[in-house]
Design a protein around this nucleic acid. Sequence first.
RNA 1: GACCCUAUCGUCCAGCGGUUAGGACAACGGACUUUCAUUCCGUGAACCCGGGUUCGAUUCCCGGUAGGGUCGCCA
Length: 449
Amino acid sequence: MTSPVRVRFAPSPTGFLHVGGARTALFNWLYAKHTGGKLILRIEDTDKARNTVEAVQVIYDGLKWLGLDWDEGPGVGGDHGPYFQSERDAVYQRYLEKLQAADAVYLDDKGSTRFKLPRKPIVMEDLVCGRVEVDRSKPINPLGDLEPDMTIRRPDGSWIFHFVNVVDDIEMGITHVIRGEDHLSNTPKHIELYQALGATPPLFAHIPLILNRSGGKMSKRDQGASVQQYIDDGYVPEAVANYLCLLGWSPKDNREKIALDEVASLFELDKINRRNAAFDPDKCFWLNGQYIQQMPLERFRALCQPVLEHAGLPIGGFPNDYLDGVLASVKEKIKLFKDLPAWTSYFFTDDFPFDEEAVTKTLRAPGAPERLQQLAAHLETLPAEGWNHDAIEAAFKDLAAQAGVKTAAFIHPARVAASGRSVGPSLYHLLALLGQEKVLARLRAAASK
RNA sequence: GACCCUAUCGUCCAGCGGUUAGGACAACGGACUUUCAUUCCGUGAACCCGGGUUCGAUUCCCGGUAGGGUCGCCA
């Protein structure tokens, strides 16, 4: 009697997509993929004060960037809409009437609507946490007071999360609720609401929280907390998604890098860890580097192009071969795409910055200008059609041998002269790519800088 | 405070009623290298404590402790 799996991600538009939320979305997505079920995106915008179109866009952007698509919800529609809680008032009204008919709610002295919490033990079979029993008939303080009844509607008519969340999960036919463990303690109350509404509760899977490096709950301020930060820093989306999978889940064969498709095929809710995991920015960064190194050049180019264009570099004015040559030369070096313009601008413009320290330490070193002149004169003798890596390397070595110095004595000033930096791709590759004419001009310009 | 969840290197993830407790990140040392990065090799680093069960517990049970969560007219 298994009905098709329907899971949902139900964020509140706060203008911020938290990695914890992103991982919740990811786990829901993985489970939908694993079971061939559907993922529903529902926007929980009952708090009018902070509900803006920009705030909702942040959610779409973050999910899409991570490669997480949804089967029903904003932008794609579906049979269970609308998918914004702010547009579902009539639905909530109808369900409220059900509770009223059952005499399960009352108005308090402030005009709030409250749900009469049944004071009885509740047993939950959580797919991650196992059997959890909560006895709500026990007092919560030394005075012997029971927990107050749950407010479900404010005097101004707006709805409270617990109620609309349950109603929507019923209406949308949600079969599995996969959410953060911070909701585990709320779940008994939700179950009582389901029962009062005559609905069968879905299955629950409460996934562990993501902690910061100090062991506390990740907050907005913690490093790595915002998905937007990864986008801005130029992380590889599949690397971040991969890293998030590793927090609380494992392929159990010691692999770290694993494609999302394969995770989906292996993903089982009862294999999710129960313990909270601290977020490790270093490991996420390392994994990102692994992805860059191992990805095909086509993917690298696709990720690089918008960054270079955004930086105002005229990459469109260069042949594809040239662009690919440049990108290939830095592919093993770049760790974050935000660093890309600094690593490659000199390939696309003559108006590139010079690193001050490199200038003073290398370009202005005793003898450096003379060597640059010598080098220019020597490289000038290479025939234009012989301008390639091996010929350039041979030229450097010949010159160094003649001068009786180490090749490095020419290499370092040449690098700074040609690129403005002391770090970069293999120098001979760099010069070969740049072309003889530009190289000679830059060596000579730098000699008199 | 009450209730709930959790407990293996600093961190993440394995593991097991008998193991030299494994891998990864980070750290440290070395090799390679024209820079940077990569790569390679190596080193240090863990079963929270106390009871029980058992021939034997890191592993199972109970208690403690610690951490996290919930107890909102936030979601």
